[in-house]
């Protein structure tokens, strides 16, 4: 008798599968997951988990949160980050103190592994959502992440 029950189960499961795909087919208009990219360039928004490039956010007073600890530079497996640092006089205490001069980021070497962002103790760097990274000259992919004239935000090191 299992012969007939196998036929019955076979047809039943085939119809179950077809109803699933049929529902997707009928909802194809509403549920399209493809982005028609160059057409919707203005409205296209990348999802939060997207790893486009490493950026260093600055606030209104042109202040970043990077203390120049170089943990990211050590964590990076392929030398993407180079921190050129300097010693300056701290205005409050008058002591000499380490600060960053240039946070150099080679996008052309980056594998988007995210170790630098995980390791950063002050959350100075994070993922950017930019994905249009093609340039005519690869030297454009070497970027200085801290803006000129920026300084460490107060209270980061406390």
């Amino acid at each position: 008798m299992s012969y007939f029950s196998e036929i019955y189960n076979g047809i039943k499961t085939l119809l179950t599968g077809m109803s699933v795909t049929g529902k997707y087919f009928l909802n194809a208009r509403k549920g399209v997951i493809t982005q028609q990219y160059p057409d919707n360039r203005e409205t296209l928004k990348m999802f939060d988990r997207f790893r486009g490039e490493v950026i260093m956010p600055h606030d209104d007073q042109n202040e970043h949160r990077c203390t120049g600890c170089q943990k990211c530079e050590i964590a990076c497996p392929n030398g993407t980050i180079e921190i050129i640092w300097d010693r300056g006089i701290d205005e409050e205490t008058g002591k000499k103190k380490k600060k960053i001069d240039q946070f150099v980021y080679h996008l052309s070497l980056c594998t988007m592994c995210g170790l630098c962002i995980d390791v950063c103790p002050t959350d100075a760097i994070e993922w950017g959502q930019n994905f249009e990274n093609s340039v005519f000259d690869r030297t454009h992919l070497t970027r200085v992440l801290n803006k000129p004239g920026s300084k460490l935000a107060p209270g980061v090191e406390d």
């Binding site: 194809a28 399209v32 493809t34």
Partner: peptide, 10 residues
């Protein structure tokens, strides 16, 4: 086109 609609593509 039908394949695309089944797979929620365009």
């Amino acid at each position: 086109r039908v394949a695309a609609w089944f797979q929620l593509r365009v």
